[in-house]
Structure formats: C-alpha cells, structure tokens
Design a protein around this nucleic acid. Structure first.
Lengths: 170, 170
DNA sequence: TTCTACATGTAAAACGTTACATGATTTC
DNA sequence: GAAATCATGTAACGTTTTACATGTAGAA
C-alpha cells in the first residue's frame, strides 16, 4: 500500500497533476518505487474520494491539479513514524545467484560480469545526476542527496561483491 | 514471473514436495524471494500441467514429490542466461527517505537510527547463519556462500550509510 | 497542418496475500 | 489421547502490469 504514500509524499512538496506525478515516478522515484500511469490515476481518484487530497485547480485538457489535505499529511506522517518498513524486498538478481550451479562456470562468471557492468552503469548515471543538480540546503536537497548517496554506495558495494564472487568460481 | 524459476531452481537441486519447498522459501529464500504456501502449491500445479516438472513419487498424507523435467531445466537455464534481471526493485525503506522532510529533524534521525539497528540485526543473523553452516565446495556451498556474502556486505553498507545520513540532518 | 507533449480514464490479466478448509501421521 | 507436524487445495481480495481508448493545446 505504499503507492498512496508515495503520492502523498510528492504532493506534500507541492500541488501537481497526475501527469506531473507520472513524470516524477519516471525520474526521481523510478529506481525506488516504479509506478504506471494507470496505477497513478486510479490511486489519485481513490485518495480524492477519501478526502486525503483535493482537486485544487483545473486547467486545460482536463488537467486536475491535486493538493494534499490535512488528513493526507497526517496519514503521511503516520506512515513515516508509526509503521515499520518492509525488510524483505524481492531481488531477482540475487535469486539467480542461488541457481548458478546449473550453468557452466564460465556462464556463471559471465552473469556476475553482467552485474559488474550494470552496477558501474548505475553508479555513473547517479554520479552524473548528482553533478547536474544544484544542491541547496532545503529539505528536498538534503533528503534527495541522502537517497542518491545510497544509490552510489549500493552500486559500489554490488560491483565489488560481483567482482569478488566471480573470483570464487572455479 | 520469477516464482516459477525459483521453484525450478530448487527442484534442480533435488526432488521435493510443496511442503519441502515451502520450508526452503521460509528459510534460505526468505530474504530474496518470499512466497506463500498458496502461491507455491498453485504454481507447482501449473508447472506440472505444463510438463516442466513431474510428480516423481507419492507419499503418505497425499504427499507429492516433484522432480524437474528436461523442459524445466532448459527453461531454468534459459532464464539464467538469456533474460536480463530487473534493475528496479521497490524499496519502501528508501521511498520513506524521500519524504523525511515532512517530519521534525529528530524524527527523521530516529527513522535512520531504526535503519542502523535493522541493518545490524540483519548482519548479525547472517553472520550466525554463516557460522552454523558447514561449507563444502559443492555448488550449493559456493553459491550459497556468495549470496550470503552479498547480504553481509549489503547490511554493512546500509548501516554505514544510515549513520552518515543521520549526521547530515540538522 | 502536423507533430509532440499534455492529459485522463478504464478493462483485462497476472501476480501476490490472507484466510478458510480439510485431513493424515508421528511424537509424547 | 492430545498436540505438533506434515500435507494439500481453494476462494476472496488487493496490487501491479499491459493494453486499449480518447482527446486537447502548443510549437514548428
């Protein structure tokens, strides 16, 4: 049920239309919480029906600009402070590792080499993104920077691990 | 669609019943690919209907022992070598970080402190697990060890990151 | 005028979780 | 004989993905 919280979170920053939010999901949230257009519009309708957000303005082409309501902000804070994050996230990358024994050693190493490359690319993309942003000391900058740093460290860790792992296979 | 591959992977090691497989999902695969009893039994029926696995033996209490068929092994190898792993995994842990700005700084730091603790616990659990296993040099040992090492490094990385992040919040 | 971007909505299918339902064998 | 474990199956519900469907406004 985190999609609704992701939407509330984005709307807590500033009012936005479904279309605006979709763009945010495709960029900053893409690596953390992917969501489709279909899902976003459906959930916005439900949130508005529940009074957690309101239609603050209507624009051209049927544009509806949503704003977070007091109840929505309370729900967002409740989620952040009172509910525990899920520990288990599915990782098909790691799941595959368990079964590499059915492949020939060189195929298993090739898989791990692919992970090295994926991690390098991921790291580089984030590095460029970090460079392109003019970081201030507002909330978005501070927490955006923290999330981005996680990505950098994660990719570096995975790269080193995959290199080490390839060396374990004889 | 990775549940079917997880099942094929486990059955490639040795024949097993739905019940046996459920236990494997609750232990070794729990952190990587959680699955419920309901899901497992349903998928096994489908895999058997598709000829990717067979009922190799029947035991007491209606026990059905499944074995992987040639087609299933081919499908498993195809998945491992020809399909790309998903990059984006949802992380509600990281999603929350984006929105910590709606909390008071001390609440945000408390959240990150919780992540430090979670990572320490995760690390410790894996360390004990690693100690308790008698590692050989068979496939399962080699790849199981590699997957476990990932968990250790991941938890260490996350712990250090969360500590650093808490220091970024004024 | 044509293309691109803006903008929304719904339906069907696939996947995942929770709950219900049942019963046999083994162990104490 | 009771309790724990082994063992399977299905129904209802919620979430996610893919696909279909439609139309407007602005830019070139």
């Amino acid at each position: 049920m985190s999609l609704r919280h992701a939407l509330l979170g984005l709307l807590s920053e500033r009012p936005a239309s479904g279309y605006d939010l979709l763009k945010r999901f495709e960029t900053s949230l893409a690596t953390v919480w992917p969501a489709t257009q279909s899902q976003i519009y459906t959930e916005l309708t439900k949130l508005a029906a529940g009074g957690l957000i309101t239609v603050a303005a209507e624009g051209p082409r049927g544009r509806k600009e949503y704003a977070i309501a007091d109840g929505g902000l309370a729900e967002l804070r409740h989620w952040l402070t009172e509910t525990k994050p899920q520990r288990n996230t599915r990782s098909d990358i790691l799941l595959r590792v368990f079964f590499l024994g059915v492949l020939k050693p060189e195929q298993a190493r090739a898989y791990l080499a692919g992970l090295v490359e994926m991690s390098e690319q991921g790291h580089e993309e984030l590095r460029l993104l970090a460079e392109s942003i003019d970081w201030g000391d507002d909330d978005l900058s501070v927490y955006g920077r923290i999330a981005l740093e996680y990505g950098l460290r994660f990719n570096a860790m995975r790269r080193e691990w995959a290199e080490w792992a390839a060396g374990q296979i004889r």
